[in-house]
Amino acid sequence: RVLTVAFAAVCFQPLSSRGVFLDGGGPAQALLLIALLVLTTLCDALLAAAAVHARTGWPFGPLLREELRGMVGITSAVCATGAVMALAVAVAGLWALPVFSVPLLLTQLSYRRYAAVRATYRQTIASLARATEIAGYTPAGHARRVAELSRAVGRDLGLSGAELTVLEYAALMHDIGQLSLVDPVPAGATACLPVTEQRRIALLGGAVVRQTGVDAAVAVVVERQADPCREQPVAARIVRAVNAYEEKSRDAGPGGGLTALEELRLATADDYAPEVVEALARVLSRGSLSVPAAG
């Protein structure tokens, strides 16, 4: 954020010192201001995406698209602050720097507190999702592994931040409908059940999610993960493919990841969306084709 504000100030300061903004209004000046703000926005998005890419190794393209989608929020405040700061320094001197920086810092602090609340909310959902593991319906760590891999696949497919959140929550809670079963499915492998039974478990899982107060979009993904692939939303397609991959690779022993991925590729398009399977393959190629051991 500091670099972005500095970039905006550097862009505006020469124009301000030459009196470009003091010669009266006009469409040309308005377009110049908009162009400089757009340039600053691109700078902010590039810096933010580059920082995340360097830290995580995630694909740069989807990260940049996600940053650009969110530029209406704090990025617009940063750009406007940089522009106003450059103009104010010419009038008020260096005292303008702390005057305009303090509100920006307070906004950033509020954002960090909001992010902390969201992190606590996710931990609550993750704890609820572990109910199937504690009850012995699914292997330990299954929901966490599916959620992590689903989020990576969603990011590779270019889903927005809000869509990734819904996807992660749905992946964490995708098996919660199994609590309605009298006899647990061996190893929690619902992909091997008849379609009618899969749909019944999915609908029951969606009903449970709705009772928790989680976003209704999460419940929709959980309910529709057993629907025909072409009728599913993207998030449900991702959860379905990743869950099947995790189950198949876990049971296939050494080299199970490659075997499971090949099974998904050989399945019909009605079972698993080809674009999701290919995104899964790309994600796995950047790491390991093996699934972490349970526990």
Rank of each mutant, 00 (worst) to 15 (best):
V2L: 15
L3S: 13
T4I: 13
V5Y: 04
A8W: 01
A9N: 00
A9H: 02
Q13E: 08
Q13F: 11
P14Y: 04
G19N: 05
L22P: 01
G24Q: 06
G25W: 08
G26V: 11
P27G: 09
I34Y: 09
L37G: 08
V38I: 15
L39R: 03
L39W: 05
T41Y: 01
T41M: 03
L42S: 07
L42G: 15
C43A: 10
D44A: 08
D44I: 02
A45M: 11
A45G: 04
A45Y: 01
L46G: 04
L46C: 08
A48V: 15
V52F: 05
A54V: 03
R55E: 12
G57A: 07
F60S: 06
F60L: 15
R65Y: 05
E67F: 03
L68A: 05
S76D: 05
A77F: 09
V78F: 00
C79A: 15
A83L: 15
A83V: 15
V84H: 05
V84Q: 04
A86Y: 00
L87H: 07
A88Y: 01
V89P: 00
L94I: 08
L94E: 14
L97Y: 00
V99Q: 04
V99R: 02
V102R: 02
L105F: 11
Q108G: 14
Y114Q: 12
Y114E: 13
V117Y: 03
R118V: 14
R122Q: 07
T124D: 15
T124H: 07
T124M: 06
T124I: 08
A126V: 05
A126G: 08
A129L: 12
R130F: 01
R130P: 07
R130W: 02
I134E: 13
G136I: 13
T138L: 06
R144Q: 14
E148T: 11
A152N: 04
V153C: 09
G154M: 04
R155S: 14
L157D: 14
G158D: 13
L159D: 05
S160L: 04
G161L: 12
A162Q: 12
E163G: 11
T165Q: 14
V166P: 02
L172T: 08
H174F: 12
H174Y: 10
H174I: 09
I176D: 06
Q178E: 13
S180M: 13
P184V: 01
P186R: 00
A187S: 08
A189Q: 11
A191H: 01
L193K: 01
L193W: 01
V195Y: 00
T196E: 13
I201D: 06
G205V: 10
G206P: 03
R210W: 02
V214Q: 13
D215I: 10
A216Y: 03
A217K: 13
V221C: 04
E223G: 09
R224I: 07
D227H: 05
D227M: 04
P233D: 15
V234D: 12
A236L: 07
R237T: 06
I238F: 03
I238H: 08
V239Y: 10
A241C: 09
A244V: 12
K248T: 14
R250M: 07
A252C: 07
L258W: 10
L261I: 12
E262A: 11
E263W: 14
L264W: 02
R265D: 05
L266E: 15
T268S: 15
D270N: 12
D271H: 13
D271L: 15
D271P: 00
Y272M: 09
P274M: 09
E275Y: 11
V277G: 07
A279E: 09
L280P: 06
R282N: 11
S285H: 09
P292N: 06
